[in-house]
């Protein structure tokens, strides 16, 4: 007979009797979706973000110019033919921006995938086995967190210049410095979840460690993992842009948003169309991803948001 004096939560009636509110861990996909949809800013950001992704992925389909096509209209201001104008070689800036956005997204997604995998494995192992393994893994995690990652990345990128043009090599290098938060978050989730009785029940029936982690713990930690992964995408794109901006990202003739911003920077005052379109595109994309991440967080755990979406 649990009796909470003030914090009594309304119970949604499901099978005609009163039952508990789905908690963060218990929220089913449908509930999460419903709460997410109540979050107007996040829904708007998701729509804009998706539109931007589609625009960049399918640029060849609807746009006459290609990013490596050299026209003889040099340094033209934006027009109906060249939406964002052209650069000093006569290349179309819109096409280049879309190409750059593609690369940035690819790097972002691949690096996030790798970082999430690594972080979840490290965090789950640390949180489930505890003891010395936890100590060792967390010390490594802290070490990576304290390293000045951009400096190290620059050194690495400089060292392996030949491979550096390769976008997925860049993604993996960035991932090497992006898994730590995921590891920490996963670990703390696993630590709390492993105290739940359903885990004890699984142990009592003889379930293996792997089964418990994969079947019971990770699915219940999925909310935090997804939220953090979303935010990682934005962080990775930003790191890649910084690298490119410093001249160590995706190598020409290919391009990325960071590289475009870098190239346009010198001309920002004379030919602003070289600088602002890729710059704004980058900022908008990052904002969208972050808003979606916030919305997801609130949807997975309305109590942390404090407002229950109203």
């Amino acid at each position: 007979m649990v009796d909470a004096p003030v914090e009594v939560v309304p119970a949604p009636a499901a099978v005609g009797d009163h039952v508990g509110t789905p908690t963060a861990a218990g929220a089913s996909g449908r509930v999460v979706l419903r709460r997410f949809l109540r979050h107007r800013v996040a829904v708007g950001a998701l729509a804009v973000g998706l539109l931007m992704v589609v625009a960049s992925m399918f640029v060849d389909v609807y746009y006459p110019h290609s990013y490596d096509e050299i026209t003889n209209e040099l340094s033209q201001a934006p027009s109906a033919d060249h939406w964002f104008g052209t650069d000093e070689l006569g290349k179309d800036v819109y096409a280049k921006t879309m190409r750059g956005a593609q690369k940035s997204l690819q790097v972002g997604l691949v690096a996030t995938l790798a970082a999430t995998l690594a972080g979840v494995v490290v965090g789950a192992a640390a949180g489930w086995y505890r003891g010395w393994l936890d100590g060792a893994l967390m010390r490594v995690t802290d070490l990576f967190l304290t390293l000045p990652s951009l400096a190290v990345l620059l050194v690495l990128a400089n060292r392996y210049r030949e491979q550096a043009g390769n976008w997925w090599a860049i993604a993996l290098v960035i991932a090497a410095f992006a898994w730590m938060y995921q590891a920490r978050i996963t670990r703390s989730e696993i630590l709390t979840l492993s105290g739940r009785d359903y885990v004890a029940a699984a142990r009592a029936m003889g379930a293996s460690d792997l089964r418990i982690v994969v079947r019971h713990l990770l699915p219940n930690a999925i909310g935090s993992i997804i939220v953090n992964a979303t935010l990682t995408v934005a962080a990775v794109i930003l790191v890649e842009s910084s690298l490119s901006f410093l001249g160590f990202g995706v190598a020409p003739p290919d391009t990325s948003l960071g590289r475009l911003v870098d190239e346009g920077a010198q001309a920002a005052s004379t030919r602003p169309w070289l600088f602002y379109p890729p710059g704004l595109w980058l900022v908008t994309l990052l904002l969208c991803i972050n808003f979606v991440g916030d919305g997801l967080r609130d949807a997975f755990d309305p109590r942390r948001a404090g407002t229950d979406g109203r």
């Binding site: 789905p22 359903y198 004890a200 029940a201 699984a202 009592a204 699915p219």
Partner: peptide, 18 residues
């Protein structure tokens, strides 16, 4: 393991919500 079954106190915490 097969010969022993366990039931816990908290009916809300002992079943995996997923």
């Amino acid at each position: 393991r097969r010969r022993v079954g366990v039931v816990f106190q908290d009916p809300y915490g002992s079943l995996d919500p997923r």
